[in-house]
Simulated scan of single mutants.
Amino acid sequence: MIEKNIKDDFLDLFYNDLCNEALENNNTLNLFTLKVKNNAFSYDELINELGNKLCYFALSRKQVDELKQADKFNDLVKKAKAKLKHHADNEGELGEILLYCLLESHLNAPKILTKLELKTNSNDYVKGADGVHLLKLSDTDYQIVLGESKLNSDISKGVYEAFGSISKFLKSTSKLEFEIDLINSELVKEAYDQTTYEMLKRIIIPSAKEDDTYLDYSFGIFLGFDIPITDDESKLSNSDFRKNIREKIKKEVLKAKNSLNHQLKKSDYTGYQFYIYVIPFSDLQNKRKHIIEKIVE
């Protein structure tokens, strides 16, 4: 199997305030709230950690390995940062990075490729899923996890947008074929030797003649939304603020379960597994650009 680069300790940045919350059709929801200190989210810790992990998200494993072996660590950092759009125009790449980190660290599904690593410059537009990951369920059963991230101040609108994108994807045979071809063509970049490559190819493109390996498609969804913090709330004691904001966020996300379950009941999604991750932000519109700006400094 491919090694994951985002380890379990990435999750130490967050409170897992809803852990594998049950949704319709055996799907799950996880709410990760960024640690709180001094009545604010610990964005400085998040920025530092994402900066440390950016190269694994933005570049192929083979490219990262080659640059490390050549002691070209400065090139490694520069090449990774150059993939990101300028922060002033960057609306969605933060969500893509966070989804990648959560699928690797929490779901234990290492990436095959990300949309970002296919870009030849920061202004490129690459169609397809935000990321593609491989999840091992058993020695014989695997899933390709296709990533879809949405950052919207209103979490219910984010749900609608995410499932709208997935619906279009599933209704387009050409898009699914494109993703399969892309996975096949890019796979060699994620394997360090021929044996690993052949093993992964057998898993990802199984033959019906080989009844010992089964592959299905699933979806990983990231939803970032805005949680307003009032002046009165910000003046609470540290302990009261922490308790108050976590409960407030949890209530908002639980309300959004109705929107999620409404989508998951649709016949379009029968047979597909969904892994849904939610992270709240204060002042989302500005914070998502600020975080990207600080990562590439």
Results as ranks from 00 to 15, higher is better:
residue 195 T to S: 14
residue 188 V to T: 08
residue 170 L to E: 02
residue 187 L to E: 13
residue 207 S to Y: 08
residue 171 K to F: 01
residue 206 P to C: 10
residue 203 I to N: 11
residue 186 E to R: 03
residue 191 A to H: 04
residue 207 S to L: 13
residue 198 E to G: 13
residue 206 P to W: 12
residue 182 L to C: 11
residue 189 K to A: 09
residue 178 F to V: 02
residue 175 K to A: 07
residue 174 S to H: 02
residue 203 I to L: 14
residue 199 M to Y: 15
residue 197 Y to W: 08
residue 204 I to H: 05
residue 180 I to F: 00
residue 163 F to C: 05
residue 170 L to R: 03
residue 198 E to D: 14
residue 171 K to M: 03
residue 167 S to N: 15
residue 197 Y to P: 13
residue 186 E to K: 09
residue 193 D to S: 08
residue 167 S to R: 11
residue 179 E to P: 02
residue 201 K to R: 14
residue 174 S to K: 04
residue 172 S to Y: 00
residue 191 A to I: 10
residue 181 D to I: 01
residue 202 R to L: 12
residue 172 S to E: 00
residue 207 S to I: 09
residue 177 E to Y: 00
residue 164 G to C: 09
residue 183 I to F: 01
residue 163 F to E: 06
residue 190 E to W: 13
residue 190 E to Y: 15
residue 197 Y to I: 14
residue 196 T to A: 13
residue 183 I to R: 01
residue 204 I to S: 11
residue 166 I to F: 03
residue 168 K to G: 07
residue 163 F to S: 05
residue 197 Y to H: 14
residue 188 V to K: 12
residue 179 E to N: 01
residue 178 F to G: 03
residue 169 F to K: 00
residue 177 E to D: 05
residue 203 I to Y: 12
residue 203 I to S: 10
residue 170 L to T: 03
residue 189 K to Y: 14
residue 186 E to S: 08
residue 206 P to F: 13
residue 167 S to P: 04
residue 198 E to K: 14
residue 166 I to E: 05
residue 181 D to Y: 01
residue 183 I to W: 01
residue 177 E to F: 00
residue 171 K to D: 03
residue 183 I to T: 04
residue 204 I to K: 05
residue 174 S to R: 05
residue 168 K to F: 11
residue 206 P to T: 05
residue 185 S to K: 12
residue 180 I to E: 00
residue 179 E to A: 02
residue 184 N to E: 12
residue 171 K to L: 03
residue 201 K to L: 13
residue 206 P to S: 08
residue 181 D to P: 02
residue 197 Y to N: 15
residue 176 L to H: 02
residue 163 F to Y: 10
residue 198 E to W: 15
residue 185 S to M: 10
